[in-house]
Design a protein around this nucleic acid. Sequence first.
DNA 1: CCTACGCTTGTTTTT
DNA 2: CAAGCGTAGG
Length: 697
Amino acid sequence: MTSVSSFSLRRLNSRQQLAAAYDIGESDGAGSAIEAGTSRPLLVLAGAGTGKTTTIAHRVANLVRSGVSGNRILLMTFSRRAAREMIHRAAQVVSATAATRPASARPSVKIPWAGTYHSIAHRLLRLYARHVGLQPGFSILDRSDAADMLDVCRQELRLSDKHKRFPRKDACIDIYSRCVNRQATIKDVTTRDFPWCQNWQDELRELFKAYTALKQSSLSLDYDDLLLYWYYMMQEGWLAEEVANKFEHILVDEYQDTNILQAAILKKLSPEGSGVTVVGDDAQSIYSFRAAEVANIRNFPGQYSGKVKVIDLQENYRSHQAILDFANVLMSDSKQPYCRTLQAQKGTGDKPFYVTVEDDFCQARYITEQILKNREDGLQLMQQAVLFRNSHHSDALEVELARRNIPFVKYGGLKFLESQHIKDVMCLLRWSVNPKDRLAGFRCMQLLPGVGPALAARAWQFLMANDARFVALSDFKLPKSRQPEWLQLCGILRHCSGVPSLLSNLNEIVQWYRPYLERRFPDFAVRWPDLEQLQQIAHAYRDAEHFLSDLALDPPLASGDHAGDPLKDEDYLVLSTIHSAKGQEWNSVYIMNVVDGSFPSEFATGDDNLIEEERRLLYVAATRAKDQLHLISPLRFYLPQQQRHGSKHVYGAQSRFMTATLLEVCERRFYGESQHRADQVHAVEQIDLPARISELW
DNA sequence: CCTACGCTTGTTTTT
DNA sequence: CAAGCGTAGG
């Protein structure tokens, strides 16, 4: 095979080149399409920082240049942000190589089918809605909506009675989700992951049945349904064929984090594996709590009887060797075999700092000081990031950053979409789009004074008896004193369901909601700006349906009301959970609370597989760093459980991951005591300030 | 039938 | 700290 383009591939190493060009024919320049489905399956094992994004971007660009139409490429990445990044990079590659050609001959890089598995599933379902028995306008339930809806069933089935000790809604939805995503029975899932629920198998089955029925009558799909419906679409002859034929090439990023259901969908999309490229790294699998299955990537070659080409990328372009030594030793301490040793192309640098600090306040201060010092040395805030295991671990730090006026953005953790007041507003919008959305309807009705579960239930029956027509809803009679608010709500619903303008509808809703906001929340003044922000976000959307589903599937950042919203071009620091930091990199990285209880998480103790996952989590965190890595270990570690009794702190044990061999590749630092002394008051002389002040008058 | 209040409980990570 | 539950009072 002749190289596709020596110019654009020059910066790739030989293995990356191979991965980017494997089994792609040469375009003859006239854009003749290659015969569909000639590419054999490809597995790219890409260690952290080995140029995975670049490689895929080049592969996409090569596909486009070889004549494959962009809309015949399915690109599934872990987050939509990753998808956007990938397309952007591919476009750059293409335009760099095509600059010599006239603009008209340049292939454009548009990959409309790029996104997460869930968002692609969603698009397909909207596209084929009428063919698969779904009404357009169906709602998407996020995780907590799903849990709430399941809880409705749980209560109706009388499973919630206290003496029964039936699992709580979150446990139930978890079990349900795993059954779906792992294509396993309740028995399998409970024995393996929820042994204390084994005695409830029959009840759980009843519950899931009722839940499924309720979702269907509410015209609602949860996240798992998106995949499940897609999977079942692929079981239907002509439909499966049509969907499979849409795509000539399928690229899946972060394949180690896909689950069994997703793998099954992929298999259905391309039974022989032709045109399939999967990319991933088993050492970076950190989503088993979401039913991710490392076996997917480990067994990928076996799936297609030896036809799979495996390309292993080991040369790391991100970090210097001292950081990679840390990562390598961390993984070699594991009992599980990760046959990957990262090799730096950048030479070496400072060893990672393992910093012992007194408590979380010292930790916050240490991080802030280092960040400021780095900034003085010319390193922007944007080149630095603070990573942590749980989103609340950054609480003390956020206070400190705000105090010192350091702007930051926090990824992960509570999104503002999950806060009550946003949900209230979104539910009214949702209800107006999908009158059968029971969860949304109940929530809205119960906002009204004097309307609780019972009245709402009667009103709901009335609405359903009237074909879910909002016009009829104003005829529902309730106590006279409640009537005005009720009619107002009906008016809004009628208006919004009749007028297609998202912006004006949302504005109506927000205005309507304002009094309820003030009645419901003492801190309404803080919450009000969120509603304005929501309206800002809505500007980017054509209609309510797109707005609602996009926000459910690709939530925007958390509200950054702490240090003020950093503008796009302003410099700001990134705070992120490690899970949300995947695929990113910074010059300087700070990992908080490298202490047992946090690394590994207290919930993981006792289960070897979970401990291993925590190890990989630390690995992912450490390999985000390009130049500087700080691992901070407070001696006193805040454990929220002990809140009441005396000390809030617990003396944390050294993280079990920090073995002697691992410590050898670190530089130890101590921080705290001296700082403490600097803060102490050296009281030499007593001054009577009040007296002085009084003298002023 | 609805609300308000006070008590207990139980807290990861995300599409 | 917020959600869930029980109780007393409209």
